[in-house]
Structure formats: structure tokens, C-alpha cells
Design a protein around this nucleic acid. Structure first.
Length: 407
RNA sequence: GCGAUCGUAGUUCAGUUGGUUAGAACGCCGGCUUGUGAUGCCGGAGGUCGCGGGUUCGAGUCCCGUCGAUCGCCCCA
């Protein structure tokens, strides 16, 4: 390679071969399952006005404060490459009057951008599949969404991953709990890790899932969400749990599971690999495969009417890592031109076969004598070889069927 | 943003305490063998050793910087 060839941007990837097959398998499976649950496809722009994300996600979050790809367009407007789906979907819902379809079940997938330090399973351009139910405030919506996620993982053959479930309560609950946490941790501030001292200002809930030993000492006696749950929020959570049981979705209560983004209320969840499982091994430090929750406050932050909603997103690259490498499908037929004089005949045969729905490839270059061997290595179900006008040989499966197509 | 390890053909890797024209396997191209064939043999193309500087008579090898990858922290899907 010439050394003046430009390199790919840091944190981006060119996906090909077995990895690309795994990637596309994830997307295809998602498309199939999403239809089973009657979610409708939507496509949103890859960039939005910066304020869409700043207002929806929260100015103080890491995503907004230091991870966005923002730039001015030629008209001087500040735009941002989407770092997540939810904010853009909410904006589309409001600006297009999609209220008329509420409750609206939406599914989408595509690239997202975050300026982060690249790592295994973490990229600057990454891809997610995403599902949302907008305009549905009842726990049944949470249950349906989680049942869909659960089925998706099962159909992908992913095991060793458990649904961790928590509630953050309604706005009031979350506020009271947050205040209690700040009060509690402020008393021992000096003994907390540096990271957690900072979290105390920005996002006290996050101290609860700190991995630092110094913080862990205080976690057992920290105020618990359940003490602050309003009656309504408590009933809501109970309904979600009993709905999941009825739907046959297994889960574990995770009291310290919180969400980084400001807009979450009530249900919060993540599918996380079990400790020591093959899945945990495959993902390294990136533990969450699929995560989401309820975001009843989001629409209002964008100036819309109060609109309840739930959603989740999952990293396609991470799911693909759990699926493992996949091979492309075997071709039905390989056509071998063992004699260049037969190229025309072979080309005609190839297009007839493809028109009949056979997947087919042709070998017609390189040494004539080596072409048959090359064809054999392609592991096709059948081989059609053109040696001469008197000698066209069909080997393998479905011989008579192929013969009648070529006749 | 912080810390650690790493960077040699298309790919996976060797390359001795610094010492002639940098090697292997697989893959690719060509020839022979095989002719119902997937084997085997021979030959060929392909690298300014990530990039830039420095030390030295001499650097793939040592030093500094830079870019990138990987593994943690952080964050998140």
C-alpha cells in the first residue's frame, strides 16, 4: 500500500467477512422480531440541531458535555451527529404530528457517533438497533418492549446474559432519592474516590455502581430507592414485574442500576453478561449489551406535550461479538468455464440460473486447468462445468432441476 | 481525559547481545501432475519493518515524539 493512502478515522471500522456476516445477521434477526411485535420502521436523519440532544439528554451528561461531534454548517447553525436515537425520534414525533398514531411502536437502526476513547466493543462510529413505544404510559408497554428484547437475544442464540431491572420512580421520587444520596455521601465525601467526589456534583446516582473499593464501603448503608418510591411508582413497578413473569421473561432486581441520561423515569434496565460467562469474556469491559428504560419527561424537555414513552437500544457490534463469526451462505451453484471458448455459453447459463432463483457464482479467470479446483473450494451445492460444446457437466445436488433450467 | 502493552509481505507470525541483498506459512499469479478432478511438485509477484526525528561506522532491533490498535479507569449500547 502506498504510504500516502489516507487512513481510516480513529474509532471507525471497516467491517467485512465473518464479522460483516454476523453484523448483518443481527440486523436481519432484529427486523424479523420487530415485525413479530408489530413495530413500524422509521428512518431519522443522522444529524440534528445540537439543541435537540443538549436539551433532551441533559447538558451535564458526559455524552453532551464532551462526547458529541458538533459542528457549524455553512449557514452558521450548530449541528450534531446523533450520539443516540431517542432524542431524534422524540423530535420527529413532535415535528411530524405522529401523536395521531399513538401509541406508536417504532423500530430503527443505524450509525451513531460519540467522541470516546476506542476500546473493544466501543467505537466512535458505532451502530445500534432501537425500539421505542411512544404515547403509552402503562406498564404493559414496558413489558412488551422487554419481551421483544428477550426474544431477540434468544433468537440470536445469545446466552449467559441476564436482564437487570430497576425503577427510578417518578420525577418526585427520583428527586427525593437523589437529594438523600447527596446528603448521605456528602458526609463521607473525603473518603470517596476522586471520581465519586466529582459524581457527587454531577450524577450522584452513579456512585452506586462504582467499582472503587473506597466507595463500596459506603454502598450497603446508602439510601435505597424503595424508601422513596411513591405509592403510584411502587404499583407501576409491581405491574411491570408481574407482567414480565406472565410473559415468561426472566429478570433480576438490580437496586443500584441507574441511567446516565437525565430523561429516564420509572423502569430502567440493562441486559448484562453473567459474571464469568463466555459472553462476559467476549465483551471485555463493555458490559451492557442492551439498555433502556422509560422516559416520560423527555417530550416536555423538547417543548412538546407530556408524553409517556419507553425504549431501548442495543449495540450491533456488541451483539455481533456474542453471536460470533459467521460464514456467508454457501452458493447453490458455481459455474466453471474450463475453456475460454465456452465463456458465452456459460454466461447465458449463469443468468438463467440466477433468474430461476439459484445463488450462483462463476469462475472464468486464471489458469484454465486450475479453475475446477477453485470451484470445488467454494463449497457450492452444485458445480456446472463448461469443458466444450459437447461436454457440459452438472455435479452435486438438484441435477435434473438445473438441467431443465439450462435446456 | 488518565494508565499499561503493542505496531515487520494481503493475513498470521519469526527475526539472536545493533552487523552483508529482511524470512516462513497461508493466500494470490503462472507452469507441471491429476482428468471426475479438492492431492502433489516447480516457479513468480508482493515489505523504504506505522510515521517523523535522534544515538551510532552501522538501527526492524536502542532513545524521544507522533499516529493507530489492544487492555484497564471513566462513560455507555
Amino acid at each position: 500500500m502506498a504510504n500516502n493512502t489516507p487512513k481510516a478515522i480513529r474509532g471507525t471500522q471497516d467491517i467485512f467477512g465473518p464479522d460483516a456476516e454476523a453484523f448483518s445477521h443481527v440486523v436481519e434477526t432484529f427486523e424479523r422480531v420487530r415485525k413479530l411485535y408489530r413495530f413500524r420502521r422509521a428512518e431519522m436523519p443522522v444529524f440534528e440541531k445540537t439543541e435537540v440532544f443538549a436539551r433532551a439528554i441533559g447538558e451535564t451528561t458526559d455524552v453532551v458535555s464532551k462526547e458529541m461531534y458538533s459542528f457549524e454548517d455553512r449557514g452558521g447553525e450548530s449541528l450534531t451527529l446523533r450520539p443516540e436515537f431517542t432524542a431524534g425520534i422524540a423530535r420527529a414525533y413532535l415535528t411530524n404530528g405522529w401523536q395521531q398514531h399513538a401509541p406508536l411502536k417504532l423500530a430503527t437502526h443505524g450509525p451513531l457517533f460519540r467522541y470516546e476513547r476506542p476500546q473493544k466493543g466501543r467505537y466512535r462510529q458505532f451502530h445500534q438497533i432501537d425500539a421505542e413505544i411512544i404515547g403509552a404510559g402503562e406498564p404493559q408497554a414496558d413489558v412488551e418492549l422487554l419481551a421483544m428484547a428477550d426474544q431477540l437475544l434468544r433468537e440470536l442464540g445469545i446466552s449467559g446474559v441476564t436482564l437487570q431491572l430497576n425503577t427510578l420512580g417518578d420525577g418526585e421520587t427520583r428527586g427525593a432519592w437523589r437529594a438523600a444520596l447527596i446528603e448521605y455521601f456528602s458526609k463521607v465525601r473525603g473518603d470517596l474516590s476522586e471520581d465519586s467526589q466529582e459524581r457527587l456534583e454531577k450524577n450522584p446516582l452513579r456512585i452506586l455502581d462504582s467499582k472503587d473499593r473506597r466507595d463500596k464501603a459506603f454502598l450497603a448503608d446508602a439510601p435505597r430507592i424503595d424508601e422513596f418510591l411513591s405509592d403510584e411508582a411502587g404499583i407501576f413497578f409491581e405491574d411491570v414485574k408481574s407482567g414480565l413473569k406472565a410473559a415468561g421473561v426472566e429478570f433480576k432486581r438490580a437496586e443500584s442500576l441507574v441511567r446516565g441520561l437525565d430523561y429516564y423515569r420509572h423502569t430502567a434496565f440493562e441486559f448484562i453478561p453473567d459474571e464469568g460467562s463466555a459472553a462476559a469474556d467476549a465483551l471485555g469491559a463493555q458490559s451492557t449489551v442492551l439498555g433502556g428504560g422509560r422516559y416520560d419527561g423527555l417530550m416536555e424537555s423538547l417543548g412538546g406535550p407530556a408524553t409517556p414513552a419507553v425504549g431501548w437500544a442495543a449495540g450491533i457490534e456488541r451483539l455481533a461479538m456474542l453471536v460470533g463469526e459467521r460464514e456467508a451462505d454457501r452458493p447453490d451453484i458455481v459455474v466453471v468455464v474450463e475453456n475460454d471458448a465456452m465463456l458465452g455459453e456459460a454466461t447465458k447459463a449463469l443468468s438463467k440460473l440466477r433468474a430461476e432463483g439459484f445463488s450462483a457464482d462463476m469462475i472464468a479467470t486464471g489458469s484454465e486447468r486450475k479453475r475446477f479446483t477453485k470451484a470445488q473450494k467454494m463449497d457450492a451445492r452444485s458445480i456446472v462445468s463448461f469443458v466444450s460444446s459437447e461436454s457440459v457437466k452438472i455435479q452435486g445436488e438438484r441435477q435434473s432441476e438445473i438441467e431443465s433450467v439450462l435446456a
